[in-house]
Nucleic acid binder design. Structure first.
Lengths: 146, 146
DNA sequence: TTCGCTGCAAAGGTTTTGCATCGGA
DNA sequence: TCCGATGCAAAACCTTTGCAGCGAA
């Protein structure tokens, strides 16, 4: 499940049909060296130390490119605007990786029922929120057509 | 696990120490009648039909109030800005409901390993993304102090 | 040489805030 | 009456876009 193995950046770019630019290379290296869940601004601040003239727009464009290529991943598929949950029953979400549509799935239908309430590091569990990410039937049909 | 039972709105407000205003009441009723995962703009459009003079700011303020009170819930705890995942190993997230801190937890440590790849409605599973929502040790300590 | 990439600045979308006024308790 | 709630407008973010010039292939 490793997303990017130790592969030269040039090779990664060839695979995805993108040009190897200096900005892109440094951005990639800086990102690989970071930990946690940085925001584009945080990545930008780090890259600026090595390329002071780089623009935030370039950072955004390339982060998107990396995410689309599967080189990096977003922490959440729901990072857009605020959405309110109208289904008050215990359920989780089926999120289509293509069209981003969200469908609810009943908790029992997932055949997953976690029991722990306290993890080893002391974290006190209130609830689990599960996103099942994949392809909805419509997008599967689209893919087989193309 | 029902978040809001059939309880008069006035009672709900008393419990949470908030005033019962006309706007708030209509907003609540309109939201309860909606399905899916509406955005504040969508809620605003609906409420405007009954209170044409209502402002979007009021809708935002009250949605937040409802979410903080537990009357409604957000679809995702990560609705803010884009975050990039730096941990390339299979893992999930511990998200503190107080301070919003995100910590990674190894997939195996969760003792959950779903096996299905296709659900009954045809949805093709690519991966599971699990947020374990609860209180981190620091916030638990904070709560017991206050 | 060509087409994609970059930097800049401006625009766009979403959400928050300050403030005067209004209204529920 | 009083303090919280509202509406408005402006500001504050975060992100995207248009475009002229630059640079990788």
């Amino acid at each position: 499940m490793e997303v990017s193995e130790k592969k030269p950046f040039r090779e990664l770019c060839n695979e995805h049909g993108i040009a190897v630019t200096h900005q892109r290379q440094v951005l990639y290296e800086v990102m690989k060296s970071m930990h946690g869940h940085p925001s584009p601004e945080e990545v930008y601040a780090r890259v600026k130390k090595r390329i002071p003239a780089i623009s935030l727009a370039t950072v955004y464009k390339n982060i998107h490119l990396f995410v689309e290529s599967g080189i990096f991943r977003e922490v959440s598929v729901h990072h857009g605007s605020l959405r309110v949950e109208m289904n008050h029953r215990p359920h989780h979400h089926l999120v289509c990786s293509e069209c981003k549509a969200i469908r609810d799935i009943d908790e029992r239908e997932l055949h997953l029922q976690p029991k722990q309430t306290r993890l080893s590091d002391g974290f006190l569990v209130e609830r689990y929120s599960i996103d099942v990410i994949g392809l909805c039937p419509q997008c599967q049909a689209m893919q087989s057509v193309q």
